[in-house]
Simulated assay, not measured.
Amino acid sequence: MQIDLSGKTAVVSGSTTGIGLAIATGLAASGAATVVNGRNPHAVDQALETIRANVSGANVRGVIADLGSRAGCDAFLKAVPGADILVNNLGIYGPSDIFATGDDEWEHYFQVNVMSGVRMTRAYLRGMMERRWGRVVFVSSESGLNIPADMLAYGFTKTAQLSIARGIAKFAAKSGVTVNSVLPGPTLTNGVRDMLQATADKEHKSIEQAADEFVETSRATSIIRRVAMPEEVANMVVYICSPQASATTGAALRVDGGIIDTIA
Protein backbone atom coordinates (compact mmCIF):
# COMPACT_ATOMS: atom_id res chain seq x y z
CA MET A 1 0.00 0.00 0.00
CA GLN A 2 1.40 3.36 -1.05
CA ILE A 3 0.07 6.23 1.06
CA ASP A 4 0.31 9.55 -0.75
CA LEU A 5 -0.62 12.69 1.19
CA SER A 6 0.95 15.13 -1.26
CA GLY A 7 -0.91 18.43 -1.32
CA LYS A 8 -2.32 17.92 2.19
CA THR A 9 -1.43 19.99 5.24
CA ALA A 10 -1.15 18.02 8.49
CA VAL A 11 -1.07 19.39 12.03
CA VAL A 12 0.15 17.22 14.90
CA SER A 13 -0.21 18.70 18.37
CA GLY A 14 2.42 17.91 20.99
CA SER A 15 4.75 16.45 18.40
CA THR A 16 8.31 17.14 19.56
CA THR A 17 8.92 13.67 21.03
CA GLY A 18 7.50 10.19 21.33
CA ILE A 19 4.31 9.19 19.55
CA GLY A 20 3.68 12.71 18.26
CA LEU A 21 7.10 12.95 16.65
CA ALA A 22 6.71 9.49 15.10
CA ILE A 23 3.33 10.52 13.66
CA ALA A 24 4.71 13.77 12.27
CA THR A 25 7.60 11.84 10.71
CA GLY A 26 5.24 9.32 9.14
CA LEU A 27 2.97 12.00 7.69
CA ALA A 28 5.94 13.92 6.29
CA ALA A 29 7.28 10.71 4.75
CA SER A 30 3.90 10.29 3.03
CA GLY A 31 4.23 13.73 1.42
CA ALA A 32 2.11 15.89 3.71
CA ALA A 33 3.21 19.42 4.56
CA THR A 34 3.53 18.74 8.27
CA VAL A 35 3.33 21.20 11.17
CA VAL A 36 5.16 20.23 14.36
CA ASN A 37 3.98 21.76 17.61
CA GLY A 38 5.44 22.18 21.07
CA ARG A 39 5.95 24.77 23.79
CA ASN A 40 9.75 24.75 23.83
CA PRO A 41 11.53 26.38 20.86
CA HIS A 42 14.58 24.15 21.26
CA ALA A 43 12.47 21.00 21.34
CA VAL A 44 10.59 22.09 18.22
CA ASP A 45 13.86 22.78 16.40
CA GLN A 46 15.24 19.39 17.42
CA ALA A 47 12.08 17.64 16.21
CA LEU A 48 12.33 19.37 12.83
CA GLU A 49 15.97 18.33 12.55
CA THR A 50 15.05 14.74 13.37
CA ILE A 51 12.32 14.61 10.74
CA ARG A 52 14.52 16.17 8.06
CA ALA A 53 17.29 13.70 8.88
CA ASN A 54 14.92 10.76 8.42
CA VAL A 55 12.76 12.02 5.56
CA SER A 56 14.52 13.31 2.48
CA GLY A 57 12.90 16.51 1.24
CA ALA A 58 10.47 16.67 4.16
CA ASN A 59 8.09 19.65 4.03
CA VAL A 60 7.94 20.51 7.73
CA ARG A 61 7.73 23.58 9.89
CA GLY A 62 7.24 24.25 13.58
CA VAL A 63 4.81 26.40 15.49
CA ILE A 64 5.53 27.14 19.15
CA ALA A 65 2.32 27.33 21.18
CA ASP A 66 0.82 25.92 24.37
CA LEU A 67 -2.29 24.23 23.02
CA GLY A 68 -3.40 23.41 26.55
CA SER A 69 -4.77 26.96 26.79
CA ARG A 70 -7.27 28.94 24.77
CA ALA A 71 -4.70 31.67 24.11
CA GLY A 72 -2.19 29.11 22.85
CA CYS A 73 -4.73 27.59 20.47
CA ASP A 74 -5.65 31.04 19.17
CA ALA A 75 -1.99 31.85 18.52
CA PHE A 76 -1.45 28.55 16.71
CA LEU A 77 -4.50 29.04 14.52
CA LYS A 78 -3.29 32.46 13.44
CA ALA A 79 -0.08 30.80 12.24
CA VAL A 80 -1.86 27.82 10.63
CA PRO A 81 -5.41 28.89 9.67
CA GLY A 82 -6.23 25.77 7.67
CA ALA A 83 -5.41 22.05 7.68
CA ASP A 84 -6.54 18.89 5.92
CA ILE A 85 -5.32 16.52 8.62
CA LEU A 86 -5.43 17.13 12.37
CA VAL A 87 -3.90 14.73 14.87
CA ASN A 88 -4.83 15.66 18.44
CA ASN A 89 -1.86 14.04 20.15
CA LEU A 90 -1.15 16.51 22.96
CA GLY A 91 -1.54 14.96 26.39
CA ILE A 92 -0.22 14.77 29.91
CA TYR A 93 -0.23 11.85 32.33
CA GLY A 94 1.00 10.87 35.75
CA PRO A 95 -0.02 9.17 39.02
CA SER A 96 -3.21 10.76 40.27
CA ASP A 97 -5.74 8.87 42.42
CA ILE A 98 -9.01 10.26 43.77
CA PHE A 99 -7.48 11.51 47.03
CA ALA A 100 -4.34 12.98 45.48
CA THR A 101 -6.07 14.94 42.71
CA GLY A 102 -7.22 18.45 43.56
CA ASP A 103 -9.63 20.60 41.60
CA ASP A 104 -6.87 22.53 39.84
CA GLU A 105 -5.23 19.31 38.63
CA TRP A 106 -8.54 17.96 37.32
CA GLU A 107 -9.01 21.19 35.40
CA HIS A 108 -5.45 21.07 34.03
CA TYR A 109 -5.91 17.54 32.72
CA PHE A 110 -9.20 18.54 31.14
CA GLN A 111 -7.80 21.62 29.43
CA VAL A 112 -4.71 19.89 28.04
CA ASN A 113 -6.04 16.46 27.13
CA VAL A 114 -9.61 17.30 26.14
CA MET A 115 -10.15 20.95 25.34
CA SER A 116 -7.01 21.25 23.18
CA GLY A 117 -8.52 18.71 20.79
CA VAL A 118 -11.98 20.26 20.98
CA ARG A 119 -10.67 23.73 20.12
CA MET A 120 -8.37 22.57 17.33
CA THR A 121 -11.04 20.36 15.77
CA ARG A 122 -13.65 23.10 15.97
CA ALA A 123 -11.27 25.46 14.20
CA TYR A 124 -10.34 23.15 11.30
CA LEU A 125 -13.46 21.02 10.82
CA ARG A 126 -15.56 23.58 8.92
CA GLY A 127 -12.91 24.00 6.23
CA MET A 128 -12.50 20.24 5.91
CA MET A 129 -16.25 19.80 5.47
CA GLU A 130 -16.44 22.58 2.89
CA ARG A 131 -13.61 20.96 0.90
CA ARG A 132 -15.30 17.54 1.25
CA TRP A 133 -12.14 15.91 2.59
CA GLY A 134 -10.40 15.79 5.93
CA ARG A 135 -9.01 13.60 8.65
CA VAL A 136 -9.23 14.15 12.41
CA VAL A 137 -7.56 11.73 14.82
CA PHE A 138 -7.67 11.80 18.61
CA VAL A 139 -4.79 9.92 20.24
CA SER A 140 -6.55 8.38 23.22
CA SER A 141 -5.30 5.37 25.22
CA GLU A 142 -6.26 1.90 26.37
CA SER A 143 -6.55 3.67 29.73
CA GLY A 144 -9.71 5.27 28.38
CA LEU A 145 -11.37 1.84 28.62
CA ASN A 146 -9.23 0.21 31.34
CA ILE A 147 -9.42 3.14 33.75
CA PRO A 148 -6.36 3.02 36.02
CA ALA A 149 -7.21 3.68 39.67
CA ASP A 150 -3.88 5.42 40.18
CA MET A 151 -4.21 7.63 37.04
CA LEU A 152 -7.85 8.56 37.36
CA ALA A 153 -7.79 12.04 35.84
CA TYR A 154 -5.78 10.77 32.87
CA GLY A 155 -8.14 7.85 32.27
CA PHE A 156 -11.17 10.13 32.47
CA THR A 157 -9.79 12.45 29.81
CA LYS A 158 -8.98 9.53 27.50
CA THR A 159 -12.56 8.27 27.81
CA ALA A 160 -13.80 11.76 27.06
CA GLN A 161 -11.77 11.81 23.84
CA LEU A 162 -13.51 8.65 22.64
CA SER A 163 -16.93 10.20 23.19
CA ILE A 164 -15.99 13.47 21.52
CA ALA A 165 -14.45 11.78 18.47
CA ARG A 166 -17.50 9.56 17.97
CA GLY A 167 -19.88 12.51 18.25
CA ILE A 168 -17.89 14.67 15.82
CA ALA A 169 -17.76 11.78 13.35
CA LYS A 170 -21.57 11.67 13.40
CA PHE A 171 -21.74 15.45 13.01
CA ALA A 172 -19.49 15.24 9.93
CA ALA A 173 -21.52 12.47 8.30
CA LYS A 174 -21.51 12.41 4.47
CA SER A 175 -18.94 15.23 4.35
CA GLY A 176 -15.89 13.23 3.29
CA VAL A 177 -14.29 13.95 6.67
CA THR A 178 -13.42 11.04 8.94
CA VAL A 179 -12.95 11.32 12.70
CA ASN A 180 -11.38 8.47 14.64
CA SER A 181 -9.59 7.66 17.87
CA VAL A 182 -6.44 5.58 18.24
CA LEU A 183 -5.79 3.81 21.54
CA PRO A 184 -2.12 3.02 22.21
CA GLY A 185 -1.07 0.76 25.02
CA PRO A 186 2.20 1.19 26.95
CA THR A 187 4.62 2.74 24.46
CA LEU A 188 8.33 3.39 24.84
CA THR A 189 8.27 7.17 24.75
CA ASN A 190 10.73 9.48 26.49
CA GLY A 191 8.25 9.89 29.33
CA VAL A 192 8.05 6.14 29.88
CA ARG A 193 11.84 5.88 29.67
CA ASP A 194 12.15 8.52 32.40
CA MET A 195 9.56 6.76 34.53
CA LEU A 196 11.39 3.44 34.32
CA GLN A 197 14.98 4.70 34.51
CA ALA A 198 15.33 4.31 38.27
CA THR A 199 13.94 0.77 38.19
CA ALA A 200 16.21 -0.20 35.31
CA ASP A 201 19.28 1.20 37.06
CA LYS A 202 18.42 -0.45 40.37
CA GLU A 203 17.86 -3.86 38.78
CA HIS A 204 20.75 -3.54 36.30
CA LYS A 205 18.46 -3.94 33.31
CA SER A 206 17.97 -2.07 30.07
CA ILE A 207 15.06 0.31 29.74
CA GLU A 208 13.55 -2.07 27.19
CA GLN A 209 13.70 -4.98 29.64
CA ALA A 210 12.17 -2.89 32.41
CA ALA A 211 9.41 -1.71 30.05
CA ASP A 212 8.55 -5.23 28.92
CA GLU A 213 8.43 -6.42 32.54
CA PHE A 214 6.16 -3.50 33.41
CA VAL A 215 3.77 -4.62 30.69
CA GLU A 216 3.78 -8.22 31.92
CA THR A 217 3.14 -7.25 35.54
CA SER A 218 0.92 -4.17 35.20
CA ARG A 219 -0.89 -5.04 31.95
CA ALA A 220 -1.23 -8.78 32.38
CA THR A 221 -3.80 -9.10 29.57
CA SER A 222 -1.26 -7.94 26.99
CA ILE A 223 -1.00 -10.43 24.15
CA ILE A 224 2.25 -9.17 22.64
CA ARG A 225 3.77 -9.12 26.14
CA ARG A 226 6.01 -6.18 25.40
CA VAL A 227 5.98 -2.42 25.17
CA ALA A 228 5.10 -0.90 21.78
CA MET A 229 7.34 1.48 19.89
CA PRO A 230 6.11 4.97 18.88
CA GLU A 231 6.43 4.07 15.19
CA GLU A 232 3.97 1.19 15.65
CA VAL A 233 1.33 3.63 16.87
CA ALA A 234 2.25 6.12 14.16
CA ASN A 235 1.70 3.50 11.45
CA MET A 236 -1.95 3.20 12.46
CA VAL A 237 -2.41 6.97 12.60
CA VAL A 238 -0.84 7.54 9.18
CA TYR A 239 -3.11 4.91 7.66
CA ILE A 240 -6.21 6.47 9.24
CA CYS A 241 -5.16 9.80 7.74
CA SER A 242 -4.84 8.31 4.27
CA PRO A 243 -7.29 8.27 1.35
CA GLN A 244 -7.33 4.47 1.70
CA ALA A 245 -9.09 4.78 5.09
CA SER A 246 -12.09 6.65 3.69
CA ALA A 247 -14.64 4.12 5.03
CA THR A 248 -13.30 4.13 8.60
CA THR A 249 -14.86 6.79 10.81
CA GLY A 250 -16.28 7.01 14.31
CA ALA A 251 -13.96 4.17 15.28
CA ALA A 252 -11.78 3.53 18.31
CA LEU A 253 -8.77 1.73 16.86
CA ARG A 254 -6.55 -0.13 19.29
CA VAL A 255 -2.76 -0.34 19.12
CA ASP A 256 -2.65 -1.76 22.63
CA GLY A 257 -1.02 -5.13 22.04
CA GLY A 258 -4.27 -6.86 22.99
CA ILE A 259 -4.50 -5.43 26.51
CA ILE A 260 -8.18 -4.58 26.27
CA ASP A 261 -9.72 -8.01 26.80
CA THR A 262 -12.69 -7.86 24.48
CA ILE A 263 -13.36 -8.99 20.92
CA ALA A 264 -15.52 -5.95 20.05
Rank of each mutant, 00 (worst) to 15 (best):
A210L: 09
V44E: 12
L183F: 00
G14P: 12
G68N: 09
G176N: 07
R225T: 04
D66Y: 06
C241P: 12
D261A: 14
M229S: 14
I207C: 02
E107P: 02
D66S: 10
Q209F: 02
D261E: 11
N146P: 05
K202Y: 07
E216W: 03
G91P: 01
G57T: 12
D194Y: 05
G38F: 04
I19Q: 03
A228K: 07
A251S: 15
T189D: 07
S143P: 04
L27R: 12
M236V: 15
P230E: 12
F76T: 01
A100M: 09
Y93L: 04
D194I: 06
S6T: 14
A234H: 00
P148K: 11
S222V: 08
D45P: 03
R166Y: 04
P243G: 01
A228S: 15
G18S: 10
V112M: 05
S206W: 08
R39Y: 07
V44C: 05
T199A: 11
K205A: 15
L152Y: 11
W106M: 12
V233R: 05
Y154S: 05
I3Q: 01
R131D: 09
S6G: 13
E216Y: 04
S218V: 09
V118W: 00
G258H: 08
I85V: 14
A149I: 09
R39K: 15
P41D: 14
G7L: 08
L125G: 01
T157H: 09
D150R: 11
A245V: 02
L77Q: 13
M120R: 01
S175V: 12
W133A: 04
R226K: 15
A65E: 01
R70P: 04
Q161P: 13
V87K: 13
L253G: 03
S96R: 14
L145Q: 15
V114R: 11
Y124T: 04
I223S: 07
K158Q: 10
A173Y: 10
V137N: 06
A264Q: 12
H108W: 06
S181K: 01
K78L: 08
D97S: 14
R119F: 00
E142K: 12
N113C: 05
